[in-house]
């Protein structure tokens, strides 16, 4: 069953690459990054890690591979990261949040909403970590001027 999921994840990510108008020669790489992301996101909870932390690790892996590939193929890195993190988007939780609010179940709605926000934050955190690793030595100064 996991194979069917991985195949469908590949198809979904490639389809999103076409929605974002990514050139045809690069769309397939985005599909492979999406499969990797989905695999990590689904395997880590089996080892007892929380969903949010798994999302952060999966987003980190997606962004890391994207940066590496972008350097290798000499194209903007967003061509790979944007489809790569699509499988992590908390669509289901966002929908349950809206449903709970429409049904006037505000307590449940707030709980689901916070989980949605946490997962979005985890995706951002994964992106940020990979970006920080790849921009070591290139950033601008902050707080103390030590080089004079």
């Amino acid at each position: 069953m996991i194979w069917l999921e991985l195949l469908l994840c590949f198809i979904a990510t490639v389809a999103f690459g076409i929605i974002f108008n990514i050139p045809l020669r690069l769309v397939w790489w985005g599909g492979f990054i999406g499969v990797l992301t989905w695999f990590i996101y689904n395997v880590l909870p089996d080892f007892g890690w929380s969903k949010v932390f798994s999302a952060a690790v999966a987003a980190f892996a997606a962004a890391f591979v994207s940066h590496w590939l972008a350097r290798f193929r000499r194209v903007p890195v967003t061509t790979f990261t944007i489809p790569g993190i699509i499988p992590l988007v908390p669509g289901g939780r966002a929908y349950s949040t809206m449903l709970a609010f429409v049904e006037e179940d505000y307590f449940n709605g707030l709980q689901q909403g916070i989980e949605t926000l946490l997962q979005a934050g985890a995706i951002a955190a994964g992106l940020v970590f990979a970006l920080s690793i790849f921009s070591i030595g290139k950033g601008v100064g902050q707080r103390y001027e030590t080089n004079r």
Binding site: E5, L8, I11, A15, F16, I18, I19, L24, W38, G92
Partner: peptide, 24 residues
């Protein structure tokens, strides 16, 4: 013009939605 024709983008969003709904 755009890289892909509009019908392909429509088709891709259908396929993407279908595959994603199975994943969820």
């Amino acid at each position: 013009p755009m890289n892909y024709p509009l019908w392909l983008i429509y088709l891709a969003s259908g396929i993407g939605g279908a595959a994603f709904s199975y994943l969820i």
